[in-house]
């Protein structure tokens, strides 16, 4: 688990990364039926290649949340919406949210100041709890889905992940952060 405090805001974040997830369908069903036990942001790791990408979206979501400007139902859905570059909420929730048949999963929990949250992550997810690590994310990211989500110019679909050099990754990150921060502007 990665614990992050974004200095400007009261809230803090807990972030998990799971592989070999067995119950994505169940999680998704419970999430969609609005069960309190599933008050998390469940993110599709196929479109995540860096912690910075995640945290950049969290920053934006918390900024909007703390100014009373969120566009979705909760801070958790707002984080997923903020990962995208489009103003279309349904579209972003579909691309960045949990996939029915996904076997990897990123889970974020926003915790209010002095809030006592009690949950056991293993009761929610059946899978292997791993360290959230950029190398691991990069190894598994899906450029086709990334391209559909962010519409990069030039297109990412023709690039092979194996050929990506450090400078390519950092340029991709910079483009992604630009898109996240400027969405809707």
């Amino acid at each position: 688990m990665l614990s992050v405090k974004i200095p400007q805001f009261q809230q803090s974040l807990q972030i998990y990364y799971f592989e070999n997830v067995e119950n994505s369908t169940e999680i998704r069903t419970k999430l969609l039926s609005g069960q309190d036990s599933h008050n998390f942001a469940f993110v599709n790791p196929d479109v995540i290649f860096s912690k910075e990408q995640l945290l950049s979206a969290c920053y934006r979501a918390l900024l909007d949340y703390n100014s009373g400007k969120i566009r979705t139902r909760s801070i958790h859905s707002e984080i997923i919406f903020c990962l995208g570059s489009s103003g279309n909420i349904v579209d972003s929730l579909t691309r960045f949210g949990i996939k029915e048949d996904g076997n990897r999963l990123i889970i974020l929990k926003v915790i209010e100041k002095e809030e006592d949250v009690e949950y056991t992550i293993d009761e929610i997810v059946k899978g292997d709890n791993k360290d959230l690590d950029d190398a691991l994310l990069r190894e598994n990211v899906d450029f086709k889905q990334m391209q559909k989500a962010y519409k990069f110019q030039p297109s990412l679909s023709n690039s092979a992940r194996e050929d990506f050099k450090e400078t390519d990754w950092s340029l991709l990150l910079r483009k992604t952060v630009d898109l996240i921060q400027l969405r809707g502007c």
Binding site: S56, L63, V177, C185
Partner: peptide, 9 residues
């Protein structure tokens, strides 16, 4: 310089 964050409001 790369953009890091934006609070346009």
């Amino acid at each position: 310089p790369g953009l890091i964050a934006l609070d346009a409001r």
